[in-house]
Nucleic acid binder design. Structure first.
Lengths: 123, 123
DNA sequence: TCGCATAGGGATAAATTTATCCCGCTGACA
DNA sequence: TGTCAGCGGGATAAATTTATCCCTATGCGA
């Protein structure tokens, strides 16, 4: 596993939240799990742009951070189900707020992001 | 400027928010500007862990994304002031929610993060 | 018997983000 | 005259995060 060389900043609440939700797909994972998609393969289908490897890895971090818990069924093929912990559930309203803001400003955001994209060369 | 090779995912509100606030210091920058610290040098002092270069760069992205606006005073030495746009202000309650969650669970978060850290080798 | 579904994680290459260093500008002040 | 304030951004190195590829395991159905 990768070992950080630079220590994280943990001054305020924002720093702390950042440590647990900063990850390309983490917020979406929490949200989809909240919606009832509990199995890795389901989540993978909900987020096809993410590689299986990364989803698995971020799920593990969420678990380490006690936001989700994992149940492994001893069957073949393997079956695993994630669910929000009570702690994780307290984060849902906040994530909902983020999503609502995004939805509320969808048109504008989409336009702004695609306008002078940081990811395309043609000006 | 860096040109992305992988296109961003823009399916739902969460994806859209992510595009504009995903950056190591962006949320904190928005918050501190909201608190009235408007000059780059002030922000730098508030966030000493960030390099001047990155703050400047992330401020520019926030500006491109219309969350903050910039006023340049034609004086020497240069004087610049950032402030939230009306659009940016709508994001403040959401950021506040994040910060509050972090503050509310500060002790637990600190413990979890430092427990089996992904950034230290000693088990 | 062959291949699939399902989940995890090692190894390694890319992609992306941050950190460092450095240059330029030009009044004010010691 | 030498130095500093304060901001921006180029160039390049590091750090960190993601993407790819691959192997393991085992009942079930074609």
């Amino acid at each position: 596993m990768y070992e950080r060389k630079i220590q994280p900043t943990l001054n305020c609440g924002l720093d702390l939240v950042g440590e647990v939700i900063y990850g390309k797909w983490k917020i979406r994972l929490l949200w989809f799990i909240h919606e009832g998609h509990q199995r890795p393969s389901e989540l993978q289908r909900k987020i096809p742009d993410a590689s299986r490897r990364v989803l698995s890895s971020q799920l593990k971090e969420l678990e380490d951070h006690e936001l989700i818990s994992k149940v492994i069924y001893p069957v073949v093929p393997p079956k695993v189900e994630y669910s929000l912990t009570d702690f994780g559930k307290t984060l849902i309203p906040v994530i909902a707020a983020l999503g609502n803001w995004g939805d509320a400003h969808e048109e504008r955001l989409r336009s702004i992001i695609l306008k002078r994209p940081h990811h395309l060369s043609t000006p």
